[in-house]
Lab assay of single mutants.
Amino acid sequence: KRPMNAFMVWAKDERRKILQAFPDMHNSNISKILGSRWKAMTNLEKQPYYEEQARLSKQHLEKYPDYK
C-alpha cells in the first residue's frame, strides 16, 4: 500500500469533522467539499501536510525498500 499524499493526510481528519457535523452526507459530496477546501488553502497552510507526506514516504521506503 502506498503512503498517503499531502491531500490524503489533511483530508483524513477533515472528513471526520464533516461527518460529525453532517452524519448523513454522502461520501461524494464530502469529497467535493474537501477538494474545494484544499484548493482554497495557501501553500503555507498546506506545508505541514507536505512535510507529513515526506515523513510517511521516507518511512515507507525504509520499511519496503523494494516497493515499486
Rank of each mutant, 00 (worst) to 15 (best):
P23T: 01
A11D: 00
H26N: 09
I18F: 03
N27A: 13
Q59E: 13
T42S: 14
K39H: 07
F7V: 00
Q59K: 09
S57C: 07
M8C: 06
R16A: 13
A21M: 14
W38G: 02
W38N: 04
R2G: 11
L56P: 05
M4G: 10
I33T: 05
W10A: 01
K32H: 09
L56K: 05
E14Y: 04
R55D: 02
Q53C: 15
Y49A: 04
K32C: 05
Q53M: 09
H26V: 11
L61P: 12
L19P: 00
G35T: 15
Q47H: 07
K1W: 08
K46E: 02
K58R: 11
K1C: 11
P3K: 15
N5K: 03
K1S: 08
H60V: 10
A6N: 00
E14F: 15
R55S: 09
R2E: 14
R37C: 08
M4T: 14
W10R: 01
M4P: 05
Y64D: 15
H60F: 06
R15S: 08
S36M: 06
M41R: 01
K1H: 06
F22V: 03
D66P: 12
K17F: 02
M25H: 02
I30Y: 00
Y64R: 11
R37S: 04
K46I: 01
R37V: 05
E45M: 05
E45Q: 09
R55F: 07
N5Q: 07
A54V: 06
M8P: 01
A21E: 15
G35K: 15
K39I: 02
N5C: 11
P3F: 06
Y64K: 12
T42A: 07
A54R: 11
A54N: 07
A21C: 05
K46F: 00
L61A: 12
F22W: 10
K17V: 05
R55L: 07
K12M: 11
N29E: 15
M8V: 08
K68Y: 09
R37M: 09
E45P: 02
N27M: 09
E52A: 12
A21W: 06
R15N: 03
Q59Y: 07
R15M: 11
Y67S: 14
H26E: 15
Q53V: 15
P48I: 02
M4E: 13
L44K: 12
K32N: 06
K58M: 11
E14N: 00
N43R: 13
N43M: 11
Q53K: 05
G35C: 13
Q20C: 03
P3Q: 13
M4Q: 15
A54L: 09
K1R: 09
I30Q: 01
N43F: 06
A6K: 04
Q20L: 08
E52Y: 04
I33A: 03
R37T: 05
R16P: 12
A6T: 02
M8R: 12
L19F: 05
H60W: 09
